Lab assay of single mutants.
Amino acid sequence: NRRVIAMPSVRKYAREKGVDIRLVQGTGKNGRVLKEDIDAWLAG
């Protein structure tokens, strides 16, 4: 149960899109989840 590193704005964006942020692979520094990662996850 790893802790997800993401800015609050990215967490909010994921919530609005209905994405469980824990399932998204972060590509930022130290595995940080970026807004682009959410978009990529939604695109498949």
Results as ranks from 00 to 15, higher is better:
residue 38 I to M: 02
residue 38 I to L: 04
residue 26 G to H: 04
residue 7 M to D: 15
residue 33 V to M: 03
residue 5 I to D: 06
residue 7 M to S: 15
residue 13 Y to N: 02
residue 1 N to R: 13
residue 31 G to D: 07
residue 6 A to L: 02
residue 16 E to A: 14
residue 14 A to T: 02
residue 41 W to Q: 05
residue 39 D to H: 05
residue 43 A to H: 12
residue 32 R to T: 07
residue 41 W to D: 03
residue 4 V to A: 05
residue 9 S to C: 09
residue 14 A to Q: 00
residue 3 R to V: 15
residue 29 K to N: 10
residue 5 I to P: 05
residue 3 R to C: 06
residue 36 E to W: 13
residue 4 V to R: 04
residue 15 R to E: 06
residue 13 Y to F: 05
residue 34 L to G: 07
residue 42 L to H: 06
residue 22 R to E: 09
residue 3 R to I: 14
residue 38 I to K: 00
residue 39 D to T: 08
residue 11 R to G: 02
residue 28 G to R: 02
residue 3 R to Q: 13
residue 6 A to F: 02
residue 5 I to V: 12
residue 41 W to E: 04
residue 15 R to H: 11
residue 43 A to I: 13
residue 27 T to R: 08
residue 8 P to D: 06
residue 32 R to E: 11
residue 1 N to F: 03
residue 4 V to Y: 04
residue 16 E to F: 14
residue 28 G to T: 03
residue 39 D to N: 11
residue 36 E to Q: 15
residue 15 R to A: 10
residue 32 R to G: 06
residue 42 L to Y: 07
residue 35 K to V: 08
residue 41 W to I: 06
residue 6 A to V: 05
residue 7 M to G: 15
residue 41 W to R: 04
residue 9 S to I: 11
residue 27 T to K: 06
residue 15 R to G: 07
residue 35 K to I: 09
residue 43 A to F: 12
residue 32 R to V: 06
residue 43 A to V: 12
residue 37 D to L: 00
residue 35 K to Y: 06
residue 29 K to G: 08
residue 14 A to W: 02
residue 26 G to W: 03
residue 8 P to S: 10
residue 37 D to R: 00
residue 32 R to L: 08
residue 40 A to P: 01
residue 27 T to A: 04
residue 44 G to F: 14
residue 1 N to K: 13
residue 14 A to M: 01
residue 18 G to W: 08
residue 37 D to A: 01
residue 24 V to M: 07
residue 41 W to V: 06
residue 37 D to M: 01
residue 29 K to Q: 11
residue 43 A to E: 12
residue 24 V to N: 00
residue 19 V to M: 05
residue 8 P to K: 15
residue 6 A to I: 05
residue 41 W to K: 05
residue 11 R to N: 03
residue 39 D to S: 05
residue 20 D to E: 08
residue 17 K to L: 12
residue 26 G to M: 02
residue 25 Q to F: 15
residue 15 R to C: 09
residue 19 V to K: 00
residue 16 E to G: 10
residue 27 T to G: 06
residue 38 I to G: 00
residue 11 R to L: 07
residue 30 N to R: 14
residue 32 R to W: 09
residue 33 V to R: 02
residue 40 A to H: 12
residue 31 G to R: 08
residue 31 G to N: 09
residue 3 R to A: 10
residue 3 R to G: 13
residue 26 G to A: 08
residue 38 I to T: 01
residue 8 P to E: 07
residue 20 D to A: 06
residue 24 V to E: 00
residue 1 N to W: 03
residue 1 N to D: 15
residue 19 V to P: 00
residue 16 E to Q: 13
residue 24 V to H: 01
residue 12 K to L: 09
residue 11 R to Q: 05
residue 4 V to E: 04
residue 39 D to Q: 07
residue 27 T to D: 02
residue 34 L to V: 11
residue 25 Q to Y: 15
residue 43 A to Q: 12
residue 28 G to V: 03
residue 40 A to F: 12
residue 1 N to P: 15
residue 19 V to L: 06
residue 10 V to Y: 01
residue 14 A to K: 00
residue 39 D to F: 05
residue 19 V to Q: 01
residue 19 V to H: 01
residue 31 G to Y: 08
residue 7 M to T: 15
residue 27 T to F: 04
residue 28 G to E: 03
residue 42 L to N: 05
residue 10 V to A: 05
residue 23 L to N: 10
residue 41 W to H: 09
residue 10 V to Q: 02
residue 23 L to R: 13
residue 33 V to A: 03
residue 29 K to D: 09
residue 44 G to S: 14
residue 20 D to W: 07
residue 32 R to K: 08
residue 39 D to V: 08
residue 12 K to S: 06
residue 43 A to M: 14
residue 11 R to S: 04
residue 37 D to G: 01
residue 40 A to E: 11
residue 21 I to T: 03
residue 1 N to A: 12
residue 21 I to W: 07
residue 18 G to P: 00
residue 37 D to I: 00
residue 20 D to V: 05
residue 21 I to F: 04
residue 40 A to R: 15
residue 12 K to Y: 08
residue 15 R to S: 10
residue 10 V to G: 01
residue 24 V to F: 03
residue 16 E to S: 14
residue 9 S to G: 11
residue 23 L to Y: 13
residue 1 N to V: 14
residue 17 K to W: 09
residue 12 K to H: 07
residue 9 S to R: 14
residue 12 K to V: 06
residue 2 R to W: 04
residue 44 G to N: 14
residue 14 A to V: 01
residue 9 S to H: 14
residue 1 N to S: 13
residue 22 R to Y: 13
residue 26 G to R: 03
residue 14 A to F: 01
residue 25 Q to A: 13
residue 26 G to Q: 03
residue 25 Q to T: 14
residue 36 E to I: 14
residue 15 R to N: 09
residue 33 V to N: 00
residue 19 V to W: 01
residue 9 S to Y: 12
residue 12 K to E: 06
residue 11 R to F: 10
residue 7 M to R: 15
residue 4 V to K: 07
residue 33 V to I: 15
residue 22 R to Q: 11
residue 28 G to S: 04
residue 3 R to K: 15
residue 24 V to A: 04
residue 38 I to H: 00
residue 35 K to F: 08
residue 42 L to Q: 07
residue 30 N to M: 13
residue 22 R to D: 07
residue 22 R to L: 10
residue 35 K to W: 06
residue 30 N to P: 02
residue 19 V to G: 00
residue 29 K to E: 10
residue 36 E to N: 13
residue 9 S to P: 06
residue 2 R to N: 15
residue 30 N to A: 11
residue 39 D to I: 09
residue 21 I to Q: 01
residue 1 N to I: 14
residue 13 Y to W: 05
residue 35 K to M: 11
residue 10 V to F: 01
residue 16 E to M: 14
residue 19 V to F: 02
residue 15 R to V: 10
residue 12 K to I: 07
residue 32 R to H: 08
residue 5 I to Q: 06
residue 27 T to C: 05
residue 14 A to S: 08
residue 17 K to V: 12
residue 1 N to G: 14
residue 18 G to L: 09
residue 6 A to H: 03
residue 7 M to Y: 15
residue 26 G to S: 05
residue 4 V to T: 05
residue 18 G to V: 05
residue 12 K to F: 08
residue 9 S to F: 10
residue 28 G to M: 03
residue 13 Y to S: 02
residue 35 K to D: 04
residue 16 E to W: 12
residue 42 L to E: 06
residue 23 L to I: 12
residue 24 V to S: 01
residue 41 W to N: 04
residue 37 D to W: 00
residue 18 G to K: 11
residue 7 M to E: 12
residue 29 K to H: 10
residue 25 Q to M: 14
residue 31 G to S: 08
residue 11 R to T: 04
residue 17 K to Y: 08
residue 34 L to D: 06
residue 18 G to D: 09
residue 8 P to Q: 10
residue 39 D to W: 05
residue 17 K to H: 13
residue 38 I to C: 02
residue 11 R to P: 01
residue 20 D to I: 06
residue 33 V to Y: 01
residue 8 P to A: 14
residue 42 L to F: 09
residue 24 V to L: 09
residue 13 Y to D: 02
residue 20 D to Y: 06
